[in-house]
């Protein structure tokens, strides 16, 4: 098992996503919530953060993505949508949760 990293900051505002990736090991999962969901968008100046991070699984909270008007087809390939029940499942299925605020 590995850790779940939650990121709630826009990658344009703060380096939380960058550092969550830097400190996460292979096999870790990153869940983007709140303004963190912008990190899951393809075609932005910071898309490479997620797109080039190999060995990590990325998830994005559907409710927060929808609230911000970002459609699923704007997501970086391989990013998986979860609902709150899926969030809970991720918490349960990882060793612990690290909140990168």
């Amino acid at each position: 098992m590995a850790d779940l990293y939650t990121v709630n900051k826009s990658p344009f505002e703060k380096n939380s996503l960058e550092n969550a990736i830097r400190f996460s090991g292979e096999g870790a999962s990153v869940l983007l919530i709140e303004d963190g969901v912008y990190g899951a968008m393809a075609g932005t100046a910071v898309s490479d953060l997620v797109a080039s991070a190999t060995g990590r699984k990325f998830h994005v909270l559907r409710a927060d993505l929808k609230a911000r008007g970002i459609s699923e087809d704007r997501l970086i390939d391989g990013v998986e949508l979860v609902d709150y029940a899926g969030f809970v499942d991720l918490v349960v299925s990882h060793d612990k949760v690290q909140a990168w605020l």
Partner: peptide
């Protein structure tokens, strides 16, 4: 360095974030 810190985070049981 990053790798050492990642290891320390990884071996923790609970992470309090502030």
């Amino acid at each position: 360095d990053s790798e050492e810190l990642a290891e320390k985070l990884g071996e923790s049981d609970v992470v309090f974030s502030f």
